[in-house]
Nucleic acid binder design. Structure first.
Lengths: 103, 103
DNA sequence: GTATAATATAATTATACGCTTATATAAGTG
DNA sequence: CACTTATATAAGCGTATAATTATATTATAC
């Protein structure tokens, strides 16, 4: 495990985007399909799809396909889940999105 | 504090670089001057200076000038220090650098 | 089968990033 | 003062990033 730090930096980098961090904060509560996530953001469908792809590429989330829907969930089996969990512990809630109850 | 998440993403983004994360891991142990940090990395002096600038811009580190040296330290008074501390808790040690004792 | 809904991929574009070299600034030394 | 050391800033460059629009894929419904 020569360069753990490099992987950790990659994880932080992928979390270091407003949209992806918000997606992770949402998935922390429960799974969502891509279409549901789309509703939270003022952004095109491909944009969300590409963010999900990056999170999946690092193994931070998993995808479950049921019928025509792709459901995403936090990958608790990830090697980096402890770090992800710790980070998400600081992301109180998603306040700047339609579904939010904060303010 | 409408969009805490955006600031947190910015913090994670700045930590999401191998060099900056290593710098933070070093500063976790003790303060260093810029010249000492330079020795750890196979990189130009301006490159390190610019990384330090980014860390300082977000308030993650502080700078103390003594004589001709600029000493840097983790800013424990930062609003984001709890997040930073938690993240650095996962960065065991800096293994890919000259001064490292791991492997 | 066609039509529609959900999702992914491809191509493009503008901007941000991380590095370099060159130069500037500031402090200590003789 | 000139000279060196430590550090920062400026300019330039190649690459990465995050978005867009357009198109492809996949599954369900009729």
């Amino acid at each position: 495990m020569a360069n753990e730090l490099e992987y950790q930096a990659a994880v932080l980098k992928v979390l270091g985007d407003k949209t992806r961090l918000a997606i992770m904060a949402l998935l922390k509560e429960r799974e969502y399909c891509a279409c549901d996530l789309l509703d939270f953001f003022d952004m095109s469908q491909p944009a969300i799809s590409q963010h999900l792809k990056k999170l999946k590429a690092l193994g931070l989330i998993t995808e479950t396909r049921r019928a025509q829907w792709a459901y995403y969930q936090i990958n608790e089996a990830s090697e980096h889940y402890p770090l992800v969990k710790a980070v998400l512990g600081f992301v109180a809630y998603v306040c700047d999105l339609p579904g939010s109850t904060c303010d």
